[in-house]
Design a protein around this nucleic acid. Structure first.
Length: 184
DNA sequence: GCTGCGATTGTCT
DNA sequence: GACAATCGCAGCG
């Protein structure tokens, strides 16, 4: 397992190129992570953990190497990897990836054949991750984080998306090829 | 191709 | 009661 203990904005770019794999009844699905965002704790107003521990965000305070799954806008699931250093709640939101296995299964889950994993809600749905998996460990069980080789592409650092606070924090990390092509 | 807006529900104040 | 780390579709150029 990768070393996930450290400041989220330092760990986040290390996750680019890693693979997130799920093995459920339908079969195995796997994506290469190409887009992430870092969310810290008390020093990050945009973080769910900023206002302290609640029932929803409790897993952000738990040990690193676990999932933090929350519902967004009442209908989507978003997947984070907990990377907190001791005593600090923080996590890395998985925003996007490229399908590396189980394309057919993912198409069925998504109900489409394009735009499969280019957003946090989509990626979670593609992998079949739901609130049931909140707090799941990533080094064993049906969901695994697999260390991959570096993508060998520049990593772009940009402000985070979809938030209304701390919008200036440059804590979004994207593998360059993603933005260069944008699609197709 | 790009922009704008409605959908839908758990969680927190 | 208000808001939210989003998505997909309709509409226009």
């Amino acid at each position: 397992m990768i070393d996930l203990i450290g400041p989220p904005h330092e760990i986040a770019p290390l996750l680019l190129g890693c693979r997130l794999r799920t093995e459920f009844e339908e079969g195995a699905t796997e994506v290469v992570i190409t887009e992430v965002e870092a969310y810290s704790g008390g020093d990050d107003p945009a973080s769910h953990a900023f206002n302290g521990r609640t029932a929803r965000n409790s897993h952000m305070f738990g040990p690193a190497g676990h999932l933090y799954v929350y519902r967004s806008y009442g209908m989507h699931w978003c997947s984070n990897i907990v990377v907190n250093p001791p005593g600090q709640p923080s996590a890395v939101l998985i925003r996007g990836g490229e399908v590396s296995e189980g394309t057919e299964i993912i198409k069925q889950r998504r109900g489409r054949s394009d735009q499969l994993t280019d957003g946090p809600g989509k990626l979670s749905q593609a992998l079949g991750i739901t609130g049931d998996h909140d707090g799941a460990g990533l080094d064993s069980g049906p969901i695994r984080l697999i260390e991959g080789k570096p993508l060998g592409r520049p990593v772009l650092t940009t402000p985070r998306v979809g938030i209304s606070k701390a919008v200036d924090y440059p804590w979004r990390f994207v593998a360059a090829a993603e933005i260069a092509t944008g699609n197709t």
